[in-house]
């Protein structure tokens, strides 16, 4: 019986999360930034499931369920905001969104 250590999953989760951070920092397209945030949420979900399996407790899975629900709600509201900003600014570039800039 082969056994995959939890650390493998955790490292994969960390790598995905780090790539999500890189996406948020480097990308200039508001939709791609939003997708990078979804990537980070997915990475955290993977860590949750791996920890749930390591402790053999269900609570981690329940948390993943809630994270997915909140992410779906966030996607709906966030994309509505994206549509509104794009209609106002005629651009998807976040550097054009400078309403609050002094």
């Amino acid at each position: 019986m082969s056994v995959i250590p939890v650390s493998y999953y955790l490292v994969l989760s960390a790598v995905l999360f780090g790539l999500g951070v890189v996406g948020v920092v480097f990308k200039r397209n508001i939709i791609t930034i939003f997708m990078s945030i979804e990537l980070m949420l997915n990475a955290v979900n993977l860590a949750f499931v791996a920890f749930a399996r390591a402790h053999n407790q269900l609570d981690g899975l329940v948390f993943v369920f809630f994270v997915i629900v909140v992410a779906a709600a966030e996607a709906a509201v966030g994309l509505a905001i994206v549509i509104m900003i794009t209609h106002n600014r005629q651009s998807l570039n976040v550097e054009r969104v400078n309403f609050l800039k002094f």
Binding site: P5, S7, V11, A14, V15, G18, L19, V22, A54
Partner: peptide, 22 residues
């Protein structure tokens, strides 16, 4: 960015839970 990534990966792989079988 790569430093952040490596730091998180290192901390996770060193943690006590890491060796547990998943």
């Amino acid at each position: 960015a790569s430093f952040l990534l490596l730091a998180i990966a290192y901390m996770l792989s060193r943690s006590a839970i890491g060796a547990t079988a998943a």
